Simulated assay, not measured.
Amino acid sequence: MDGKIINNDVRVHSHIVATFRGHRQEVCGLKWSTSGQQLASGGNDNLLYIWDRSMASMHSRSQWLHRLEDHTAAVKALAWCPFQRNFLASGGGGSDCCIKFWNTHNGACLNSVDTGSQVCALLWNKNEHELLSSHGFMQNQLTFWMYPSMVKIAELTGHTSRVLFMAQSPDGRTGATAAGDETLKFWNAFGTPEVKKAAPKAEHPGPFPHIRGIR
C-alpha cells in the first residue's frame, strides 16, 4: 500500500538494486518488457507508469519514463507485444473497462477499445496477431480479439468469478487461467502454431505496418 516497487537481485547480499516511486496507492500490475529494459506498472490510483531500468536508482523519486493518466479505474492488466518493441497493452477496471495500446517510446496512446466489463488480465498470442483478455462482472469471460482491427473473434465462459491471471504455455498453444472462484482452467486457446515461410522484405513492412513512430 506504500506504492513502492522494489527491484531485488537475490543473487547478491545487498539485494535491493532499485526502487521505483510514483504510485500513491496499491500497485496492481507489473510486467517487464521482453528486452528487460522497461517495466510497466499499474496502480489502484488509475495510473500507468513506464519505467526505464537505466534511469532507476535506489534513491530517485521521479525516474519514470512516462506517467500515463488515461485510464479511469485501477490498472491491473498489462501485456507487452511479442512482435513489436515498445508496444504495450493495458486494461482498466470496472469504471473504465478499456483496453488501451501504447507506444512506450513516446508515451502516445494509439488506440482504446471499450470492452464493456472490467479488464483483469491480457495475453498476446505468440503465433498470430491476436489478443486475449479476461474479465470480471458480469460474465467473467475470456474474449479473443483480432489485432489491429479489434474485431471480437470469440468469447469463452466457464469461470464463476473474475479471471485474475492468465499464462501461456511455452509452445504458445495452451492458455491457463486463474480466477476468484479458486479454480485453474486450461484452454486450447491458440491452436497449432503455423510454420511460416520467409518472404521478400519488400512484401512485409512489419507485423504492425499501420503503427508509426515505434522504434
Rank of each mutant, 00 (worst) to 15 (best):
M1N: 14
M1T: 14
D2G: 05
G3F: 05
I5V: 14
I5G: 02
I6A: 06
I6W: 04
R11V: 02
V12P: 02
V12E: 07
V12N: 07
H13P: 02
V17R: 07
G22N: 07
H23I: 01
R24C: 08
C28W: 12
C28P: 01
G29P: 01
G29R: 03
L30K: 05
T34H: 13
S35N: 12
G36A: 03
L39N: 00
L39K: 00
L39E: 00
G42L: 01
G42T: 00
G43Y: 03
N44K: 10
D45M: 04
L47K: 07
I50E: 00
D52E: 15
S54I: 05
M55N: 14
M58W: 08
M58S: 10
H59A: 09
S62W: 11
W64G: 00
W64C: 02
W64S: 01
L65G: 02
H66I: 00
R67S: 12
L68Y: 01
E69H: 14
E69A: 12
H71C: 06
H71F: 08
A74G: 10
A74N: 10
L78V: 03
C81R: 01
N86S: 07
F87Y: 13
A89S: 11
G93E: 02
S95E: 13
S95F: 11
S95G: 08
D96N: 03
C97Y: 03
C98Y: 05
F101I: 09
W102H: 03
T104L: 00
N106V: 11
G107K: 06
A108Y: 06
N111Y: 09
V113A: 05
D114Q: 11
D114R: 10
C120E: 09
A121L: 03
A121H: 05
L122I: 07
E128N: 11
H129D: 09
H129N: 11
L131M: 07
L131C: 03
H135D: 02
H135N: 04
M138N: 10
L142A: 05
L142W: 06
F144V: 04
M146V: 10
P148W: 04
P148S: 06
P148T: 01
S149N: 10
S149K: 10
L156A: 09
L156C: 11
H159W: 02
T160Y: 10
R162G: 05
F165W: 13
F165I: 08
F165T: 12
A167E: 13
G172R: 07
R173H: 08
A178G: 14
A179V: 01
E182H: 09
T183Q: 09
W187H: 10
N188Q: 15
N188W: 14
N188E: 15
G191E: 07
G191Y: 08
T192Y: 06
E194A: 14
K197V: 04
A199Q: 12
P200K: 02
P200M: 03
K201L: 13
E203L: 13
F208D: 05
I211G: 00
R212L: 14
R215Y: 09
